[in-house]
Design a protein around this nucleic acid. Structure first.
Length: 473
RNA sequence: GCGGUGUUGGUUUAGUGGUAGAAUACCUGCCUUCCAAGCAGGGGACAAGGGUUCGAUUCCCUUACGCCGCACCA
């Protein structure tokens, strides 16, 4: 099992590199830890996943609005959110065996609740334990633990003038999550688009974290992309839903997204957070069982009830009124929030993990197929002339030209026809169209299906209609 | 971050103190054509830096990156 896990992971990583999906960053300089680059097909796949998310979250709802906010934000943003002061892991090292622990975890073992506490508190408590000679290394047993130190997960920039940059008070950070932008543009959105509660704001974008450890391919990276939505509602609405109902609705809606795009139901499950942030009332994660990780479940998306904490904090720090006046209840209040937050790369990897299939085609011969949902396949249609002869190549190219106006298409003349089919199977192209000698006579082409490998003869004039039906969602 | 281990064409790998072979992929030509056919030809690699040595891809050190375990994951 362990060997399988490693093998499949390495196999898929090599596959994604050799087929132009995912490259390690800066490889010609020896590599750069914690960042990955996406090649042609990887980019197309990511775009399709993001489009699918936007369609589901915005286009097919009438209560969620789009946003694209900056990566740089006012420094106060992260003070209000608590990131500057608490978005870090206070660490304690053992001088003897070099093992590193989280300070709050050590204290919790002694029954001291140290969650989200400042350094002073942690060190005072650690000192007390040290004085009682209780503070020993869990690993080697020696009493040589250092004091708690902070490793900030926030990525600093040197934006601004040199004098500004020197001031600790005005450090500009790269956003560690995208939702901050939503809170900051909540008021402008309310004032310009006048949505009524309940409504949501959604955005996709990059975020940055100075992770101490980055491992397991694209699972934990320092630069990553998020798809986030914040849903604002009145928890006391007379006619409306209660918080729990909103929460259940969003849980179902998000889980259905993965079902609808073809992820196996058995590979998805809920994880309930037992330890909640002090402002949160409920928190669940959607987890996916990665075959390439030896069937380990890993977080895909979080759905969290955040109360009115975020808007209250930003209201307090900015001095601006972020409340909402409910015509129905004649009440003014700070809306509560349910957040859905998914990682783009993890989602992509889950789709690939789920779609990566090896099939026996003939005796002892297998093919690799990416059985992706048609809607997210990087390339929709590939067009081949049966042979590399002018009389076949030219009309085939005309078909490619026409279909390319509507779909992402490839045109390939190299190698045997079988080889070209296999190549498209590997990148998940749902349909291959072959123009042969017969086509010159009957104005028809062969359409070959990725999953069944079956073929149909279709009139060239009917191709658009045929594909439209196939891609009808 | 700690410990272990590794790094040879795009990918998968063989091998060596005297600068390397293969499979596959790719390109060209011929031929063939509906599921990775054949023939001929071609381009392509010892992670980086330093040391030992007449000579280092090979031995030693450092760094980078990967993998496994531990720890960590707002």
């Amino acid at each position: 099992m362990k060997e399988n896990k490693q093998d499949l992971m390495q196999e898929i990583v090599a596959f994604l590199k050799s087929r132009g999906f995912v490259f390690p960053s800066s490889e010609i300089y020896g590599g750069f830890n914690g960042v990955y680059d996406y090649g042609h097909y990887g980019y197309l796949l990511l775009e399709n996943i993001k489009k699918a998310w936007m369609k589901s979250m915005i286009q097919e709802r009438n209560d969620v609005l789009a946003l694209d906010s900056g990566i740089f934000m006012h420094p106060m943003t992260w003070k209000a959110s608590g990131h500057v002061d608490t978005f870090n892991d206070p660490q304690v090292d053992c001088k003897h065996c070099k093992t590193r622990f989280r300070a709050d975890h050590i204290l919790e073992k002694f029954g001291i609740n140290a969650d989200k506490q400042g350094l002073d508190f942690l060190n005072t408590e650690l000192d007390k334990l040290r004085a009682e000679k209780k503070l020993v290394c869990e690993n080697c047993g020696k009493a040589e633990l250092t004091e708690a130190k902070v490793f900030s997960l926030m990525v600093k920039s040197n934006l601004g003038s040199p004098t500004d940059a020197l001031s600790e008070e005005n450090v500009v950070y790269l956003r560690p999550e995208t939702c901050g932008g939503i809170y900051l543009e909540y008021k402008n959105t309310l004032d310009s688009l006048h949505p009524k509660l309940p409504f949501g704001m959604a955005q996709i974008g990059k975020a940055f974290r100075n992770e101490i450890v980055t491992k397991q391919f694209v699972f934990r990276t320092r630069e990553f992309e998020q798809m986030e939505m914040q849903y604002f509602f009145n928890p006391k609405a007379l006619e409306g839903k209660a918080t729990e109902e909103h929460f259940e609705d969003w849980k179902n809606y998000r889980m259905n997204f993965y079902y609808e795009y073809g992820i196996d139901r058995d590979s998805l499950k809920w994880y309930k957070h037992e330890k909640l942030a002090h402002y949160a009332s409920d928190a669940y994660d959607i987890e996916y069982k990665y075959k390439m990780l030896g069937d380990d479940f890993k977080e895909l998306e979080g759905i969290h009830a955040r109360g009115d904490w975020d808007l209250s904090q930003h209201s307090k720090f900015s001095g601006k009124d972020l409340s909402y006046f409910d015509e129905e209840t004649r009440e003014r209040f700070i809306p509560h929030i349910i957040e859905t937050s998914a990682g783009v790369a993890r989602t992509m990897l889950a789709f690939i993990d789920n779609a990566y299939t090896k099939e026996e085609v003939k005796e002892g011969e297998e093919r690799i197929v990416l059985k992706l949902d048609k809607r997210i396949s990087p390339v929709k249609v590939a067009i081949f002339p049966l042979m590399k002869k002018e009389e076949l190549v030219n009309p085939a190219r005309e078909i490619w030209k026409d279909l390319s106006k509507k779909y992402f298409c490839e045109f390939d003349t190299s190698g045997s026809i079988g080889k070209r089919y296999r190549r498209q199977d590997e990148i998940g192209t749902p349909y291959c169209i072959t123009f042969d000698y017969e086509s010159l006579e009957d104005n028809s082409v062969t359409v070959r299906d990725r999953d069944t490998m079956s073929q149909e003869r279709i009139k060239i004039v009917d191709l658009r209609k045929y594909l439209e039906e196939k891609f009808e969602f």
